[in-house]
C-alpha cells in the first residue's frame, strides 16, 4: 500500500495548500487557536478567522438557502455543545455569525438566558428569520463536540444531522477490543490528517492570504461579533431583549 501523505498541523496544511495554489506565505506566518477567535498572523498583520464559514456542511446549508432548494425560510435552530471551560463568548460568536452569514442578514435583536455553563438565545435577523441558538460548554476533553443546525422553511427543512439521530455521525467506525468504537471523519483529501475544524481553519486562512479584502472583512466582522456576544451576555445579565445598533 502506498504511503499516505498526511498533514499534522494547521500551519503545515496552510503551507501545503498555498504551495499548491501559488499563494505566498510570509515567513512569519502563524496560526493560533487559543483566543476568542483563531487568528492568522502573516506579514506583520493579525487576522481574526471565521473558519466555520469554510466548513463544508455550512457552505452547503448556505447554498440550500440561495439555490432555491428552500423557499420562504422561517427559522434557524442551532445547538452547539463544546468542551468544559470554553468561553461562552466564543460559542456565541460562532453561532451568531453563522446566523448572519448563512442568511446574509444582520441581527436585529438578541435575547439570552444564561445559567452556569449553558446559554439559550433568541435572535431575529432583519429579514425576519428567527434564530434559536442553544449553547453549552460541558464536554470532557476528547469528546466529539455536538453541533446541530436546522433551517425550517415553508418549502423544506435542511439540517446537518441525519433524520432520527442526535449526535454526529462519522465516516469510519473501528470496533476492536473496547465496547465503544473509535470514530473518524475525514473531509478533505488535500488536507488529510486534519480534523474537520482544522481543515476549515486552514481553508479560511488560505482565503485570508489570497484575498486581503476578505481578510479585512473578517477582522471587521470579528470585532462586530465580539460586540454582539457581549450584547447577548448583557441581555442575560439584565433579562432584557437588546436591540443591535449599527
Amino acid at each position: 500500500m502506498k504511503t499516505i501523505h498526511k498533514i499534522s498541523t494547521p500551519l503545515e496544511g496552510l503551507q501545503y495548500l498555498a504551495g499548491r495554489y501559488d499563494v505566498a506565505v510570509p515567513a512569519d506566518a502563524k496560526i493560533q487557536k487559543d483566543g476568542l477567535f483563531s487568528t492568522l498572523t502573516a506579514g506583520g498583520k493579525t487576522i481574526a478567522l471565521l473558519p466555520w464559514r469554510s466548513e463544508r456542511k455550512f457552505v452547503e446549508l448556505k447554498n440550500l438557502t440561495i439555490d432555491g432548494t428552500l423557499k420562504d425560510i422561517s427559522v434557524l435552530r442551532s445547538c452547539h455543545i463544546d468542551y468544559d471551560g470554553t468561553d461562552m463568548k466564543k460559542l456565541l460568536c460562532r453561532e451568531l455569525d453563522l446566523a448572519e452569514w448563512i442568511f446574509d442578514a444582520k441581527l436585529e435583536y438578541i435575547f439570552t438566558m444564561k445559567n452556569g455553563k449553558a446559554a439559550n438565545t433568541v435572535a431575529r435577523l432583519r429579514n425576519g428569520i428567527v434564530c434559536t441558538l442553544e449553547t453549552a460548554a460541558t464536554l470532557a476533553p476528547e469528546a466529539q463536540t455536538l453541533d446541530k443546525h436546522e433551517i425550517i422553511a415553508s418549502k423544506g427543512v435542511a439540517l446537518d444531522k441525519v433524520v432520527d439521530t442526535q449526535i454526529q455521525q462519522n465516516s469510519v467506525y473501528l470496533y476492536t477490543d473496547q465496547p465503544e468504537p473509535d470514530a473518524f471523519t475525514d473531509t478533505d483529501f488535500e488536507l488529510y490528517g486534519l480534523n474537520a475544524e482544522d481543515v476549515a481553519l486552514v481553508r479560511c486562512a488560505l482565503e485570508a492570504l489570497k484575498d486581503p479584502a476578505a481578510a479585512e472583512k473578517m477582522n471587521a466582522q470579528a470585532a462586530r461579533l465580539e460586540q454582539l456576544a457581549e450584547l447577548a451576555l448583557r441581555s442575560a445579565e439584565t433579562g432584557r431583549k437588546l436591540i443591535v445598533e449599527d
Binding site: G68, T69, K155, G156, K161, V163, V172, L174, Y175, T176
Partner: peptide
C-alpha cells in the same frame, strides 16, 4: 480476527426536504 471496520465513503452530509420535490 481482531475487530471490524465500517466506512461510509460519502458521508456524513447535509440533508433537506426542499425543492424540487420536497423529498428527503
Amino acid at each position: 480476527d481482531k475487530g471490524s471496520l465500517l466506512a461510509d465513503c460519502f458521508g456524513p452530509n447535509v440533508y433537506h426536504s426542499g425543492m424540487p420535490d420536497e423529498r428527503y
